[in-house]
Simulated assay, not measured.
Amino acid sequence: MRTVTRVLLMLVTLVFGLALLPAQAMATPADPSLDDATSRQIDDLLALRNSLTGPRTDAIAQLSGRFIGTPYRANMLIGSASQPEQLVVDFRGVDCFTYLDYVEALSRSADRGQFVQNLIATRYTDGQVEFTHRKHFFTDWAYTNRVAANDITASLTPGAVTITKHLNAKAGGGNYLPGLPVVDRNITYIPSGAMDNAVIGGLRTGDFLGAYTDEAGLDVSHVGIFISTPNGPMFRNASSLSANNQVVDTPLTQYLTTVPGLVVLRPN
Rank of each mutant, 00 (worst) to 15 (best):
D43A: 15
I68M: 11
S82E: 03
V103K: 00
G159W: 07
R134D: 05
P230T: 11
Y102P: 02
Q41D: 09
G174I: 02
L100D: 04
I190L: 04
G224L: 05
T250P: 06
R6T: 09
G201Q: 06
G224M: 02
P267T: 12
Y176K: 05
R266E: 00
P191I: 00
D140C: 10
H166A: 10
D90M: 00
G202Y: 07
T28P: 00
L256F: 02
T122P: 08
Q24W: 02
A25L: 02
G79K: 13
E104W: 01
A171V: 04
T188R: 06
R49S: 03
I60C: 08
A74Y: 15
M10T: 10
M10H: 11
T3C: 09
V15M: 10
N168W: 12
G69E: 08
E215A: 12
A169V: 01
I163Y: 05
F115Y: 01
T57V: 06
G79N: 12
V220A: 02
R123G: 05
R146T: 10
P267N: 12
L45T: 06
S107T: 13
P191Y: 03
D43I: 04
A198K: 13
T53W: 10
I187Y: 05
A81D: 15
V223S: 12
A194E: 13
G174S: 14
F208P: 00
Y102Q: 12
V12H: 13
S228Q: 15
L167P: 09
L8K: 08
S242P: 11
F138D: 10
T125K: 14
P22K: 06
D111H: 12
R2G: 11
Y189W: 09
F235V: 05
Q62C: 04
H136A: 14
N186L: 12
T162I: 07
L63Y: 05
V147G: 03
C96R: 04
L177N: 07
V264C: 01
D214Y: 05
L156W: 03
T213W: 09
L252T: 01
L100C: 15
L262K: 05
I60A: 01
P55Y: 02
T188V: 07
R6C: 02
N197Y: 02
R73Q: 12
L9W: 07
V15Y: 10
L262N: 01
P71H: 15
G113D: 10
F235L: 09
G201M: 09
G93H: 06
D140E: 10
T144E: 15
L34Y: 07
V223C: 14
L177S: 07
S109Q: 03
S39L: 14
T157D: 03
Y255G: 02
D151E: 09
A27I: 12
A142M: 08
G127M: 00
H133W: 10
D58P: 00
T162M: 10
Y124S: 00
V89D: 01
T213Y: 03
P84S: 08
F67A: 08
D31I: 06
S228L: 14
S39M: 12
V263R: 03
P178F: 06
V161C: 08
Q254I: 04
A19I: 11
A61M: 06
R49N: 14
K135T: 03
D90N: 15
Q83F: 11
N197C: 00
P181E: 11
L18I: 13
Y176E: 11
T164F: 07
S33D: 12
L156P: 00
R66E: 07
N75T: 10
A216W: 06
L9G: 04
T213H: 02
L218Q: 15
E85A: 13
L203P: 12
M76V: 13
